[in-house]
Amino acid sequence: MSTTARTPHQIIADHYAASDRHDLDGMLADMAPDVRWTEMAGFPCAGTYVGAQAVVEHVFQRLAADWQDYRFTLERLYDAGATVLATGQYSGTHRASGRSFTARVAHVWQLHGGRVTAFEQFTDTLLVAQAVA
């Protein structure tokens, strides 16, 4: 096994691989204790949450409760050193409305010392809102 530290790009690739496996512990493994996680204004769980537990409660658990088959499909990771950009697609079916959506998305990740320190999401919130209504 290599003792080489993982790059920010690999850390984020590992996060998405854990997400695909529905491995919450794996998704949280590299988050700094004071990670700042921002969901875009207009998104159902909009806001900035500090700390992994806040992210779990206000984002991951809420998405799982409100959406059936909610997922992020990664298309590409862009390596910019301590910043990693992911592009892809969200999709899911809102449980209450029964409506589905698909929307393009970009995630911007900031890392320091091998830990995720910030995350920011950019997506077409109108497409999501139309599925909720």
Rank of each mutant, 00 (worst) to 15 (best):
V84I: 11
R76L: 06
L77S: 03
F72H: 12
G51P: 06
G113H: 02
Q130C: 07
G92D: 03
Q110R: 15
G88Q: 05
G42M: 04
S2V: 01
R115L: 12
G81F: 03
L63R: 09
E75V: 13
W37F: 14
H9T: 12
V84R: 01
R71A: 11
R71D: 10
T123A: 15
D23L: 07
M1F: 12
V108G: 06
E75Q: 14
F119Y: 15
Q53Y: 09
Q61P: 07
Y78S: 06
H58R: 14
R62C: 07
A118Q: 08
S2L: 04
V105C: 11
Y70T: 05
A32M: 05
V50D: 09
A86Y: 07
F119M: 08
G113C: 02
G47H: 08
G26Y: 06
P8R: 01
W67R: 05
A17F: 03
H22D: 15
T117I: 14
A52Q: 10
V59P: 02
V108T: 12
T123R: 02
T125L: 05
Q130T: 10
F119H: 12
Y16K: 05
I12F: 03
T123H: 02
D66A: 15
V108C: 09
A82V: 13
A86D: 09
G98M: 03
W109S: 01
